[in-house]
């Protein structure tokens, strides 16, 4: 992690070091005990033909080669996934921030509204969701009836290969609750004095938003951006529940492909290789975001990390 301000002291203080290690010790133990082995194992699998039950054979880079050269769905899936990330992540963040700002107002019954807005996130992957989503977006569904009533024709929201991915993205945007909560918590952290000072200076609403709200919220935006990106790249629930990858593989996201290869086709070795490719892609995007962060995030600790 880069930081803006040159560090005050470059040497590590011994007691600082010791305390730091002690505080993160639980994680170190947890990582070694529960996470390291599964990670290494899946990395090893990616060079084998591991099929869950049969003894595995090393196949070198075959899995990686096959993925890039002869898998008929790999590129389709990767393209759909990137497109999906580009739609769902900004959509969700903007919506969540906007709603959080509205819900941050001092209104009566605001507690009630906040709870209502969190409901979709509690519903999660409930079986009711897939039933409802089909009702809403079918040819004779609610959305089309509404569009017809205002004079717009019907669209095949989930049935058309061109629209299905976007429609599915709506489900994820709709479950914006956790981002909203984070923004709300972040908004509450902004000292009121700053706003008062801005008001005294006669700053307009837009200026207050861009000069105070956004910078003060930037650590939370940053966190939300990274997490939503990671989750969107790994998205599995929405396509699995609603479209199972169709029509014409237009919603065949990476997560669905992985799942099918691993547990339907029993090609765990191959799925592991695909996972590590996805891991590298996510890593790349995340690293870029981290690298960019000194230019747009603001920390009260002076950016020292």
């Amino acid at each position: 992690m880069r930081h803006r301000r040159p560090t005050r002291q470059l040497k590590y203080r011994a007691d600082d070091q010791r305390a730091g290690y002690l505080y993160i010790l639980p994680w170190i133990i947890g990582f070694l005990a529960f996470q390291l082995y599964p990670f290494l194992a899946s990395f090893v699998y990616s060079f084998t033909d591991f099929s869950i039950l049969r003894p595995m054979k090393f196949v070198g880079l075959d899995n990686y080669k096959r993925m890039f050269t002869s898998d008929r769905l790999f590129w389709t899936s990767l393209k759909a996934t990137v497109l999906y990330v580009l739609m769902a992540v900004p959509g969700k963040l903007i919506f969540a921030l906007f709603i959080a700002m509205v819900l941050n107002m001092k209104l009566k019954f605001i507690n009630f509204f906040r709870t209502i807005y969190y409901l979709p996130s509690i519903l999660g992957g409930s079986v009711a969701i897939s039933i409802l989503w089909r009702f809403l977006f079918s040819r004779n569904g609610t959305v089309n009836s509404f569009l017809n009533s205002i004079g717009i024709g019907s669209l095949d929201w989930l049935g058309s290969p061109n629209l299905a991915l976007g429609t599915m993205g709506l489900l994820v945007v709709w479950q914006f609750g956790s981002s909203m909560v984070l923004f709300l918590a972040g908004l509450k952290n902004i000292p009121q004095e700053l706003y008062e000072a801005a008001r005294v200076d006669g700053a307009g609403r837009i200026k207050t938003f861009t000069k105070i709200t956004l910078p003060m919220l930037s650590p939370v935006i940053f966190f939300n951006l990274i997490m939503q990106m990671i989750n969107a790249f790994k998205e599995f629930n929405a396509p699995y529940l609603i479209t199972q990858g169709g029509p014409l593989n237009s919603t065949y996201l990476y997560g669905v492909m992985l799942y099918e290869n691993a547990f339907t086709y029993l090609k765990m070795g191959y799925a592991s290789a695909q996972s590590w490719v996805l891991f590298s892609i996510i890593m790349g995007f995340t690293a870029l975001t981290f690298k960019s962060s000194p230019y747009w995030t603001y920390y009260e600790d002076g950016g020292e990390f």
Partner: peptide, 10 residues
């Protein structure tokens, strides 16, 4: 037509 029916394919 497939656009219409595909929702219930699974």
């Amino acid at each position: 037509p497939f656009n219409e029916g595909v929702l219930y394919e699974t």
